[in-house]
Amino acid sequence: MKSIRIEWRKIKRKHFALVVLGTLLLLLFWQLWSTSRMDETDLIQGWMGLLYQMPLLNCIVLPIMTGVLASRISDIEHKGNTFSMLRLLIQNRSIYFAKIYLGVFFVGITTLGEVMMMLMLGFLRGFITSPPWGFLIYFFGYTLLVSIALYLFQLLLSLIFKNQLIPIGISIMGSFIGLFSLYMPGRIQEFFVWGYYGVLSNVRMNWDAVSRIIDYYWTPLNWGGIVVIVAFSIVITALGYRLFIRKEY
């Protein structure tokens, strides 16, 4: 608890909330723009459309956002050369997990904000069907899990490399790979953690090139994918911790 309180004090005037707010505003503007012209068919499929588009946007935005969060949280120590001093005062484990806690908190707020935003958009645009609560909860769950996995990965990199260009560069690459992987055949997508927003999504689309009509449909929930992402997070946390305690700052 003490280490978490210390982490909170460190970021007090660092405007972390702006990172979350900026991400949500970006997603909101995009969705307001993309849902601005909806006919009756679109309004019937409104929730499906949102649940289809949001993972695509998340593939672009959230890898970089988690990279920025992890970099900010670690860079405070790199800039002040405070890791060695901190280690004298607090246990390695406490430092590492306090930084995880902090990132998970912001990632959680962002994901919750996304769901609230979708609900708001649904009511604002007047979607004809009622909100699919179960699928919205599933969306919240898998988006949170993937974002936590990406944050853990980025935190590992940001703690290991003093030069934050490397983790940020990898987050940009990840975003690119994640987005491109969505256009690849199913099995290939599953090899890239950044594309898991799309892999775990339970909405797919049929697009008729002649009539230019989009039809969305539900797919079974991807529990296997959830297991993969949880396993990835556990492995990355263990690996990150191991590398962090061995690292000489």
Binding site: K14, L18, V19, G22, T23, L26, F29, W30, W33, I60, V61, I64, M65, G67, V68, S71, R72, D75, Q164, L165, I168, I172
Partner: peptide, 22 residues
């Protein structure tokens, strides 16, 4: 002074550019 915040802003700029181009 942050290293990563301007990069986040660049991403925002890039995403918004799509709306402007449209």
């Amino acid at each position: 002074r942050s290293f990563s915040i301007p990069i986040g802003i660049a991403l925002m700029g890039g995403v918004f550019s799509l709306a402007f181009l449209a």
